[in-house]
Write a protein that binds this DNA or RNA. Structure first.
Length: 347
DNA sequence: TCTGGGGTCCTAGGACCC
DNA sequence: TCTGGGGTCCTAGGACCC
């Protein structure tokens, strides 16, 4: 019995939230991202109006500004987006017993019957309660549902019957497949594989030789096969924070104080709920080369002091270089659930 | 085009243990 | 003594996603 999987994806989420707060922005090019004047950063989201000028997510903000100086540039109000997200996810969670949130503005859920009616009901409810539009894709697995939700954006609804999976995917560019990005696309293009249809026909053994397990995934995906498992509980794997300096930095004291402030924010975010065993430091130099250095302890830690001290040690070999970015991440997390687990660590 | 910040997962080599 | 194989953990780098 095949399942009915639905992917709900909010349209231009950040900028749409901003338009709700300030209706004057509606129908205008709006960009959420870095400050275009001190331009170090990228476009996080832009409105459909801005996309007409060639703007898109992840575009360097300086380039966006050249293409569309008349747009309204906003630095982003994540508290606001979080509030909207909470409302939307509450609606979706109430709709289905199988629900999986993906970031702030997307979710998968399982439908039972009359999926189209169900989808319209969801779209209406979101629109009524938040003023925002969502696009929904429906298929027999997450892969199809996700690509379908993107098919008729914005405010779209696309249902792909399982027997149409291959025909639906076939003309689409390989870039639409989850997992095919900037690097994989040209590798496949070299093989003469440009559309998902090309990929579906391509010899699977050759793909496996080139890409390993990922090759098997690619072949299956291109043939419309994918997971239909909706995982309801999310277990955090790591938690980190990073900061790009306004100008590349060589000043040790300034870097140290940045480390302290990043560490403090990470510790705050653990909410005394997580122990960590591994600390990773990330350093990006002025030429954009990026390094990571990690240290794993035998016992789980919670202390900010250890985080700061270890990060400084890991940073040591890079002092003297022009540093663009510095980041800290904690992993090997153990969730503190009870007093008993405290005792286990002799605390 | 001059490249954010939050993440996850995979790979490969080396250490170490049995 | 110049030498096997399996398993696990750690580190570093990289690709990708939202």
């Amino acid at each position: 019995m095949s399942k009915i999987i639905m992917h709900v994806d909010m349209d231009a989420f950040f900028t749409s939230c901003e338009e709700q707060q300030d209706p004057c922005l509606k129908g205008k090019p709006v960009v959420v991202g870095a400050d275009p004047k001190h331009g170090r950063g990228v476009v996080a989201t832009c409105s459909y109006e801005a996309r007409k000028y060639g703007l898109h997510s992840a575009m360097p903000i300086s380039r966006a500004y050249k293409l569309c100086p008349q747009a309204t540039y906003l630095k982003g109000n994540f508290q606001l987006y979080y509030e909207y997200s909470k409302k939307i996810m509450e609606i979706l969670r109430a709709c289905s017993s199988k629900f999986q949130q993906m970031g702030l503005d997307e979710a998968y859920l399982e439908a039972t019957n009359s999926p189209k009616k169900f989808a319209y009901k969801i779209k209406n409810e979101i629109k009524q309660k938040t003023g925002l539009t969502a696009s929904i894709g429906i298929g027999n697995n997450k892969l199809i549902a996700k690509i379908a939700s993107d098919f008729q954006k914005p405010d779209g609804l696309t249902l792909v019957p399982p027997e149409n999976n291959k025909n639906f995917l076939s003309p689409l560019p390989i870039r639409k497949l989850h997992g095919v990005g900037r690097k994989t696309e040209p590798k496949l293009a070299k093989l003469g594989v440009n559309t998902i249809g090309d990929l579906a026909k391509y010899n699977q053994e050759k793909l496996t030789k080139m890409f390993g397990i990922f090759g098997i995934y690619l072949h299956n995906a291109a043939n419309g096969m994918g997971s239909d498992y909706i995982s309801e509980d999310y277990e955090r794997v790591s938690l980190g924070k990073e900061r790009t300096f306004f100008e590349d930095c060589t000043d040790r004291e300034k870097i140290y104080s940045t480390i302290s402030s990043i560490a403090a924010q990470i510790i705050r975010r653990t909410e005394q709920k997580y122990f960590f065993k591994t600390i990773s430091l990330k350093v990006r130099l002025s030429n954009f080369t990026t390094f990571t250095r990690a240290k794993t302890f035998k016992f789980p830690c919670t202390s900010k002091d250890i985080l700061v001290r270890t990060s400084k040690q890991l940073l040591d070999e890079f002092l003297g270089n022009k540093i663009r970015l510095i980041g800290i991440r904690i992993s090997h997390l153990e969730e503190l659930k009870s007093q008993r687990s405290l005792k286990q660590y002799g605390i």
